[in-house]
């Protein structure tokens, strides 16, 4: 099956290695992976800021770049959620486009959801020595209906990684306080929310917090380090599953 990898703007800019980990995992699952070179952003910043026109323009671009694939996979519950849950809302007045959008939605997946439920990958290349705690992203949990949290894995079963031990943190499904532009508009409230998340991570005693979305990752890592925690690692689930992070 031909899979179009939607790298996402944050992975492209900030953590390319997550994109490569996703690529490796999809190839390990036997997919033929292509990465459309013109891809940029899914349009979520505009959509959540009330700028529908901007969101629509970018949604149309994503549609044209990705509708030719059998599947579209993103290492992000948030971007996959934007496409699957919100794109249809943007084209209510264009029945023909809406039809195409509907087909796009049906084949768009968050990475871990895709690996487990479509590609049915039973053995991941990764191995991890240590205890990790998962932070599911809100979009993955609540927009994609439980699958696609990245962290908790589809159906709530964390992906099996050799050696990895799980320690669930308190309020694991609570928002970390990122919220896109929220983190800038209300920086102090956002940081206070991140602090609660960090306290729960610390209390879990885990060596690493593993998550599925770059937004949460920057927020949580940024707050952990500012708070003086140099020990707890912050990893994307793709890095752990692909074996690019082994805990050593």
């Amino acid at each position: 099956m031909r899979v179009g990898l939607f790298v996402t703007c944050l992975v492209d800019l900030v953590r390319p290695r997550i994109g490569f980990a996703a690529l490796r995992l999809l190839e390990a699952a036997g997919c033929e992976v292509a990465v459309p070179a013109t891809q940029t952003c899914c349009g979520q910043p505009g959509y959540n800021s009330g700028d529908r026109a901007s969101a629509r323009a970018l949604a149309r671009k994503v549609l044209e770049e990705f509708e030719g694939f059998d599947y579209v996979v993103a290492p992000s519950g948030s971007c996959a959620g934007m496409i699957r849950t919100h794109y249809p809302d943007l084209f209510g007045d264009e029945p023909v486009t809406l039809d195409r959008i509907g087909r796009l939605c049906a084949k768009t997946y968050e990475l871990t959801d895709f690996l487990a439920n479509v590609a049915k990958l039973d053995a991941v290349p990764g191995a991890f020595e240590g205890t990790v705690t998962y932070h599911d992203s809100c979009s993955g949990l609540r927009e994609l209906g439980g699958g696609g949290g990245g962290g908790g894995g589809p159906g709530g079963a964390p992906p099996r990684v050799a050696g990895l031990e799980l320690a669930e943190m308190k309020d694991a499904t609570a928002c970390c306080g990122f919220g896109g532009t929220f983190s800038i508009k209300f920086g102090d409230v956002s940081a206070a929310m991140a602090e609660k998340k960090c306290a729960n991570i610390a209390a879990s005693g885990a060596d690493a917090v593993v998550l599925g979305d770059l937004g949460c990752m920057l927020n949580i890592e940024g707050r952990l380090r500012r708070g003086g925690d140099e020990r707890t690692r912050v990893l994307h689930v793709a890095e752990v599953l692909a074996g690019s992070e082994t805990g050593q």
Partner: peptide, 23 residues
């Protein structure tokens, strides 16, 4: 982005974009 960094750090990018490395 002062509102971000008042209460937290911003982890720095790796330095190359995915699309550069992929190409």
């Amino acid at each position: 982005g002062g509102a971000w960094t008042r209460g937290r750090d911003m982890p720095a990018p790796e330095g190359r974009t995915f699309r550069e490395l992929y190409a």
